[in-house]
């Protein structure tokens, strides 16, 4: 269980389990992303380059993007991939619930910097066709998990 410090919002999450799950399907998911000159989760919009106070808000919005638009719209006949993505989606849901508690306790403020970074992430996502965006976002779970690990 890892403790993520996102400004004054502190949550625990099982990053190792998510890492293990994604590493089982990483190569196959990455192989579907043929657009190599576009990256959605770029360094300059990363959690680490965001003011601590705004990290919770940024992560909450990114997780919502994954839950609302990525996991939901990824189609695959491969049951193994389906199971691993279900596991990741349900783990993300758990984290989002914890961030919601921070929001209720006013420890997850959304200020301009975080919202501006999220809107850039969203525009990178929406520049692509829907299927391409979903596949690319899944392939970048490595980056998102790394962002969360850095918040330990």
């Amino acid at each position: 269980l890892k403790t993520l410090h996102l400004g004054s919002c502190v949550i625990t999450t099982n990053l190792q389990e998510m890492r293990n799950g994604f590493s089982e399907i990483r190569d196959r998911v990455l192989a579907e992303d043929e657009i190599i000159d576009v990256r959605i989760l770029r360094k300059m919009v990363s959690l680490q380059d965001t003011e601590p106070a705004g990290q919770c808000c940024l992560l909450r919005h990114v997780l919502r993007l994954y839950l609302d638009k990525v996991f939901k719209n990824y189609q695959t006949p491969d049951h193994h991939i389906l199971r691993k993505l279900s596991s990741l989606a349900n783990s993300f849901l758990t984290i989002k619930k914890d961030l919601r508690l921070c929001h209720d306790r006013m420890t997850c403020p959304c200020w301009e910097e975080a919202m501006e970074k999220y809107s850039r992430i969203l525009s990178h996502f929406e520049e692509l066709k829907p299927r391409e965006a979903v596949v690319k976002a899944l392939g970048e779970l490595d980056i998102l998990l790394r962002w969360m690990e850095e918040a330990e």
Binding site: D68, F71, S87, A89, F92
Partner: peptide, 17 residues
């Protein structure tokens, strides 16, 4: 069906491993 599936994709059921 995990909580995610029942909340976001309620028609989806996943065959067990």
């Amino acid at each position: 069906q995990g909580e995610y599936e029942s909340l976001y994709m309620s028609h989806i059921w996943i065959p067990s491993s």
